[in-house]
Amino acid sequence: MTDLAPITALGGSLARVQSFGALAIAENADLALASLALRRGAAQPVPMGLSLPGPGLWHAGNGIAAFWTGPGQWMIEAPGRATEDFAAVVKQAAPECSVTEQTDAFTAFEIASTAGAGPILALMAKLVNIDAAAFGPGSATRTGLEHMSVFVIRRAEDRLAVIGMRSAAGSIWHALETAAARLQGD
């Protein structure tokens, strides 16, 4: 294994974590990502036993997860496996599809609430023009957040993930931090 030391998207050696009252935001630096796109004539695969979700949805199972990103296209997530060549694993599981490494194309922030759905919905109302009430657990979409493109995943009633361009990690963190801090003050 290489002796080159990786850094997180925010530029640190450790993932950043910060609490704002009922909300905690954590940089998820260990998330592997690979894009999977159907080729002509390919049947929709069931990579590593996970059924791929329809538009606007996210499924988790067997240690991995997937969310729909476009017609015939999904992003496969593998928590904790960022240093692996996860794209190669997915390609093996779906050899007839186009698979592309995306682990370091993105930065992921996991947001958890200690007070149920309320703080999550309040945070979403400050950040994205998505009707949070219609964005229950298992929902995933890309949308705009402070002039940036991000994926938003409702992992649970009290958990939300915001996944955006790795290079913009600092700007995304700033937007999340500012909104969360203001909600804390209210």
Partner: peptide, 13 residues
């Protein structure tokens, strides 16, 4: 045409 695209600008240093 059978072709798939995705951006990898940030993925690779």
């Amino acid at each position: 045409l059978d072709v798939q695209l995705i951006s990898t600008t940030d993925a690779w240093a």
